[in-house]
Design a binder for these strands. Sequence first.
DNA 1: CGACCGTTTGATAGTGCTCAATTCAAGTGG
DNA 2: CCACTTGAATTGAGCACTATCAAACGGTCG
Lengths: 264, 264
Amino acid sequence: MSFNSQPHASPPATGLPSQVVSFQSSRAGYLAPRIACNTCNMHELCMPVGMSFEEVEKLNELISVRKRVKRGAALYRSGEEFSALYAIRTGFFKTVVNAEDGHEQVTGFQMAAEVLGLDGINTNRHTCHAIALEDSDVCVVPFGKLEELAHDLPVFQRQIHRMMSREIVREHSVMLLLGSMRADARLAAFLIDMVQRLHSRGYSSHELVLRMTREEIGSFLGLKLETVSRMFSKFVEEGIIEVKQRHVVIVEPEALNAIVHHHP
Amino acid sequence: MSFNSQPHASPPATGLPSQVVSFQSSRAGYLAPRIACNTCNMHELCMPVGMSFEEVEKLNELISVRKRVKRGAALYRSGEEFSALYAIRTGFFKTVVNAEDGHEQVTGFQMAAEVLGLDGINTNRHTCHAIALEDSDVCVVPFGKLEELAHDLPVFQRQIHRMMSREIVREHSVMLLLGSMRADARLAAFLIDMVQRLHSRGYSSHELVLRMTREEIGSFLGLKLETVSRMFSKFVEEGIIEVKQRHVVIVEPEALNAIVHHHP
DNA sequence: CGACCGTTTGATAGTGCTCAATTCAAGTGG
DNA sequence: CCACTTGAATTGAGCACTATCAAACGGTCG
């Protein structure tokens, strides 16, 4: 099960160390006024297939604006007007929906090379918050211009359709998790998903640093934070993982898989 | 909360009686070989805004193929190649995802004027089953041709984007339900959603006939069928609804609303 | 160092699941 | 036409799982 199937089997992004996520990633010069899309380390997102030089130029123009979002700050909030999609360059986000009664729930966690904002297309207003869980920066992609570019590049248009379809399929997986798995299976699936997504970005395949609290994990998984904590402790007791605060080492990946697929 | 926000506030489809769903709807002549899109009773889906005569002609060509699906049969199945979207003309469907371990879960119920197949765009293969819960017929919309038409009609392109975004937002609502509501609130929300969607199609606003079993409702809501049945009984005892098999009358809509929004 | 936030752990209660028995509705065939 | 079959729905009893409430612990940062 994957909560965020990557676009194709994207190679690890350049410049990222093939090891565990570091708390403070150096980003000196990262926000220099002019970084072309073709030198961006997530360009597989924007340029799915062969694109001519002229086309790349258009793309450069399209997403020349970037934005920093401080940890804890919102990239956008529910109710705000929708104007652009956001491609995450570096950092980590959560998306949160809120019910009328004030109750909130995390609907997903997003990392580099993933896209935020698709929820706003429908009504031209965002329907969830996008909150940075660490200092992040994103490419701002004005949606009107994106549609123009897509119009000129059918293959790019298809890529946008695929991106939205992928999000729909991802949410199917989450629904399956929320509707049919028990607490231990939910957390196991969550850990597998996170480490896989990080691995595809060049990080370790068995080690990760969580960017969110137990409460946020619980909100996403439909559990209370105490239950999340208990499941972590259970996995540690069973020797399946090692946990030091938010640093998690997966010792027995197969055991995690078995828990996900084991039915009561 | 809505699990399937309609495209704008669409007027009731023509030809549908403004009363409870009938078990056997007459559809004599419905599948006559040539029914133009502009006489189709769900054309608000296809033609969001002013469209010229020529444009309507293109559209007619696009979706001239229709398909009947018998109750219990699959419109498509997970793993099958994706080639088209399907606009439901009449009938009722469920979509079902299946985990590797064989476990299945209903991810949604679809009725007339709603679209099936968006899950297949991503990988060119469907990732869920679409099963008819009653004899249905659908317009087959070849996706390649749809993209061509969208290319010629930017406003139509936008409509497709909105449709996909709407599905993403709908699934957020389901995640909220599955992640944070108790059994009674889930069923109450489900009933409200169903009756609202039917009402927007010209049916009663307080009475409905369910097309799915208790087990299918439970699968969608993340509950066991016995729990669904018990919640029905509870609502009946409390005088909120009346139930005769799959025929449901909502006596106290406000009470249902209160149950959805009431937090423990 | 102390305050605070996040996390862990324990005890208890509630909610929904499991297993099982009936009831009900709608066919089906003698 | 009625006994029989079948699938769906209801209802009950006991239990498993997760939430709740509460307390203690630990790391971080002013």
